[in-house]
Design a protein around this nucleic acid. Sequence first.
DNA 1: GATGAATGAGCATTCATTCAT
DNA 2: TATGAATGAATGCTCATTCAT
Lengths: 210, 210, 210, 210
Amino acid sequence: MSTTEKTDKREHILLVAEELFAGKGFDGTSVRDIAHLAGVNLAMISYYFGSKENLLKELIEYRFSYTVSLLEEKSNDQLQSPWEKIEWIIDFYVERIINNRRFHSIMSQEYNTARSSEIKELITSIKMQNLERIKKIIAEGQRKGVFRKIDVEMTLATMMGTITQVINSKNVYCVLLRIDTTDEKEYQEKITQRLKTHLRELLQAHLIGK
Amino acid sequence: MSTTEKTDKREHILLVAEELFAGKGFDGTSVRDIAHLAGVNLAMISYYFGSKENLLKELIEYRFSYTVSLLEEKSNDQLQSPWEKIEWIIDFYVERIINNRRFHSIMSQEYNTARSSEIKELITSIKMQNLERIKKIIAEGQRKGVFRKIDVEMTLATMMGTITQVINSKNVYCVLLRIDTTDEKEYQEKITQRLKTHLRELLQAHLIGK
Amino acid sequence: MSTTEKTDKREHILLVAEELFAGKGFDGTSVRDIAHLAGVNLAMISYYFGSKENLLKELIEYRFSYTVSLLEEKSNDQLQSPWEKIEWIIDFYVERIINNRRFHSIMSQEYNTARSSEIKELITSIKMQNLERIKKIIAEGQRKGVFRKIDVEMTLATMMGTITQVINSKNVYCVLLRIDTTDEKEYQEKITQRLKTHLRELLQAHLIGK
Amino acid sequence: MSTTEKTDKREHILLVAEELFAGKGFDGTSVRDIAHLAGVNLAMISYYFGSKENLLKELIEYRFSYTVSLLEEKSNDQLQSPWEKIEWIIDFYVERIINNRRFHSIMSQEYNTARSSEIKELITSIKMQNLERIKKIIAEGQRKGVFRKIDVEMTLATMMGTITQVINSKNVYCVLLRIDTTDEKEYQEKITQRLKTHLRELLQAHLIGK
DNA sequence: GATGAATGAGCATTCATTCAT
DNA sequence: TATGAATGAATGCTCATTCAT
């Protein structure tokens, strides 16, 4: 069997697990569920991932792995103004969270519940890193006199919280926004656009004051 | 045994269940856990509540029961300006969610996971009702020319999402805000104040533009 | 259900477990085996004993509980000569071990294997207590000039080891002694008599020298 | 790979298996344990030995193979007196069992448990052969009027049982004999000497009567 | 000859719930 | 009303073994 196939199988299991964890929660999903939906043998899951807990850990690492350095780069970019950076970050996060909304949903569901402190610390450290980078950008804007004196930490909570709220209360916002839930793609596009525009206007008013 | 004692026992079980659900999730909490921590017989839980699922339902009804009409009243109040109403709502929600943050945590964790559509619909309808009331107030402000044309639904998401974000990422924000986690009361007071001030400034800039 | 019935069920499970452990070893016996042969529900075993390991522990305590003080009494008896005491002990041990040969077999099988140090220590302490009591009797005989100077500890090993050897190599000794294996009762009586006589003659020659 | 290397690998696996079987029992040892400790691929065990059961069988054959004829020779030796032969046999068995005490431990643990009748019969036949040879020597001594009329089979049980008892209750006898368990070599030497002396004195008193 | 991948069967244990009392 | 006893179903996981390469 080729390396690709092996990787694909692992990845396939991870994606199936992600879907189930998002829909039924970590504890609500059994390893049997995952094996069945993934079309693999039950023992395969333990064989590849050791344990259900470790499967979650590997999913987290898999999802976070490719977005480590992007933010770092952006915050150090000398050519963009602080507000341009904020606009970029809004777009980046809205898209990233909407695209990975299943995974994001797991994170917000399981974060408080996580039994393994290892997983908890992994998530905390990633969240902290991301928040520190955005903090740096806002601080830069404040130093340059472009941004007003606002509560930076709470502003970060607003940014993330708004997106999370829309994701996690999908049903409610679909009704409110009169978006058809069945057309997944349409929902995604509309909600992405709406979130981007809102956050730009909201944060512009908040940070710059117009 | 008197009716009062019976009610107290039921309530006691509900509160213990709330604590455990918040800490370990619905699926992560066993009926045995609840019975043990509540100091009651295992069979009593089924005896009183029928099933674990129904225990959650009763907890939701118990928590929502006393906050139904308050918002209704406020939105119809003719003596306050729209902004005064928004300020009141911010304070009301921040306090209510912070005070019931365990329950709120359960709701955000279990909402997407809930197996019973009955519970899902119950939560959706309550959320919808609350959002509709706030929508009405913002619409009133816009009609009066006091509030700018903003995305009402997204603004609601910002309000709720910001509070939820701070609650559910307690660990992260405690570190960021340099608040001691061990002193529960101090944490609660500081975070309440901080959230209220931030949301007022944020929404004032957003809705009114100053 | 009466207390007697409940105790009987526990005891019944213990006896079934003893039989299986003796025949297939602790690890070779599954909780399913025990439940099946005992005619009880699988979950019952965990309900009564908590775990398989603890079932073994309770079996050990159950088997040892009623023979604690008998030996103590005998060793302090002032009316018997040391050799009369040794004769009594030979008879006592041969009968006790033959009658509980299944349990004895488990002990010699699992002693070196026992995973829980708690069980190991329990067995060691019981063995030590018994050996100390016999040591005391031999020492008394030596003080009185009745017994020769022999290696006390090794003599204990001989006493116990001879019985154990016959029990654990039943097949071999049945052939050697030309005893029919199918008639359990006949086997037991013959072997008991043979062991008693042999040990008396052996130890008399060893301790007294005739 | 050369034949030597292959044999060495097989032997290495056997020795590792012996160690684990002795420490955790046959059922308590997994093929994975053996493969891991031996540093070989898991599938290799099945590849070399066919099955776990057969691995045990090969271990037994491996251990017994080199001691088949020694005893035969000795019992036919015309130059030694029956008592000299018994002395030689005591030394031979004590040393052989002490040196192979891990294997001996497995035999006494698994003998009653062994699922395969093939293994059971193998062990029984080896034991029988050995016992028959010693029987012959004692019978010779009795014919010559050197040995008393004693229970030959039980005397054999005493010889083997005493050694086995000391080996299998190592912990107990280490405490009783005040031997340091950590120094394996010291333990082995002391216990060997002690056993030899004890068995000589014991059997001399028993067989010859002095 | 040697091995990574895979698997069906089985493991001990825990689950929410029911029932006789 | 209250509860100890009981249970069928499911849990996560490990087992010895096989097989394609």
